[in-house]
Simulated scan of single mutants.
Amino acid sequence: MTVKTKWLGVVVALLLVIVAAAGCAGKGQTKTGEGEQPGSLSGSIKIAGSTSVQPLSEELADAFMNKNPNVSVMVAGGGSSAGIKAAQDGAAHIGASSRELKPEEKTGLTETVIAKDGIAIIVNPKNGVSELTLDQIKKIFAGEITNWKDVGGKDAPINVFTREEGSGTRGAFEEIVMGKDKKITGKAGVQNATGAVRTAVERDENAIGYISLGSLNEKVKAVTVDGVKPSEETVLNGTYKISRPFIYLTKGAPTGVVKAYIDFVLSPEGQKIVGEKYVPVRK
C-alpha cells in the first residue's frame, strides 16, 4: 500500500467517525418543538411550585407525555413562592403559582395563565338567603356568625360544612376567604369530597358549604358574593372574588420542549382537561 492510499483510508475513517458522532449528538438534544410531529419531541421538563396547581399539572403532564413518549415531565410542589423563586433561579423550567405575583417578583419572568379556580358558596335551595358579603362568609366559617337571622335569613342555626385538611379546595378557600387571621370553626362538619359537601347541603335546609364552580348543580344554590354571581364569566373577568389564577412562569419567553408543553396546555385538548375541574382560559 502506498503512503497516499494509506492516508486516504485514514481520512475516510475519520469522516465516518465524525458523521456517526454527529448522529449520536442529535439524538441526545432536546427538540425545539416547532414544526415537530406528535411523538417526535424529546427532552425533560421540571415544574415546581403551588400545591394547588400541582394536581392539574400532573394530569396535563401525563397527557403530554402520552403524546410524546420521549419527553419526561417532572412535577413537584413547594408552594407558589417557591415556584416563583425556582423559575427565577432556573431551578425549574416552569414555576407554578396560584396567586398574582408581586411587582418585585415579576422581573425577568414570563407569566402564562393556564386556568382559573372559582369556588362557589352553596346553601340549600329552600334557604331564603341568596347573597352574602365576603366578610359575612368569613365570619360564618369562623364560627362568629352562627344564626341565619344575622345575615337576613330565618331564625335558625347555621350548619357549616367544610372539606378535609389537605384538600386543594379547602386550601384555596382558606387562602382567599379566611386569610391568615381566621380559622375554620372546629364545629364544622368535615366532608372528604366535593360531592359529599354538596349532598350535605342538599339534605340540610340550614347548611352552608363550598365547592368548585364546576361541581354546581340544581340541587344546591350558589349565593352571590358582594353582589356578584359565580360563573365562568365572572371568574374570568375577575369580578367574582373567590377565585384565583393558576399561572405558569418561565425565565424569559418559553422555548423548545417547554414551549411545546405550554402550547399543549393552552390548546383545546389541554383546556378540556382544565375544564374538568377548573375554569379554562381558552375555548
Rank of each mutant, 00 (worst) to 15 (best):
E104R: 06
S130I: 00
K138M: 06
A120D: 14
L109N: 09
G108V: 12
E105M: 08
F141T: 04
I137N: 02
R99A: 08
E144S: 11
I140K: 02
T146C: 02
I137P: 00
I119E: 15
G128E: 11
K138T: 13
E100Q: 12
R99G: 09
E104Y: 14
R99F: 00
I145F: 01
T112E: 03
T112Y: 07
Q136T: 03
I145K: 02
E100G: 07
D150R: 04
K106A: 14
E100A: 13
A142R: 08
N147K: 12
K116M: 14
Q136Y: 04
E131F: 01
A120R: 07
K149R: 11
A120W: 05
L109Y: 12
F141A: 06
K139A: 15
N124P: 09
W148Q: 02
L134T: 12
A120S: 12
P125R: 08
R99N: 03
N147R: 11
V151S: 04
T107N: 11
L134R: 14
K102F: 07
K139D: 14
E111R: 01
I114R: 03
T110V: 09
T146W: 05
V151Y: 04
I137S: 08
G128D: 15
T133S: 13
T107F: 05
G108W: 10
A115I: 14
V129I: 03
P103G: 12
A120M: 00
V113N: 09
K149C: 03
E105L: 03
D150F: 02
G128F: 00
G108Q: 13
D117L: 14
N124S: 11
I114P: 07
E105H: 11
K138G: 07
V123E: 06
V113S: 11
A142Q: 05
K116H: 13
T146S: 10
N127T: 09
L132D: 01
V129F: 05
I119A: 04
T107R: 06
E105Q: 15
T133C: 04
A142I: 08
N124F: 08
E104T: 09
N127W: 01
I140A: 00
N124A: 10
T133V: 07
I145G: 08
D135Y: 01
N147I: 10
V151R: 01
I119S: 05
T133G: 08
V123D: 03
E105R: 02
T107K: 15
I122P: 05
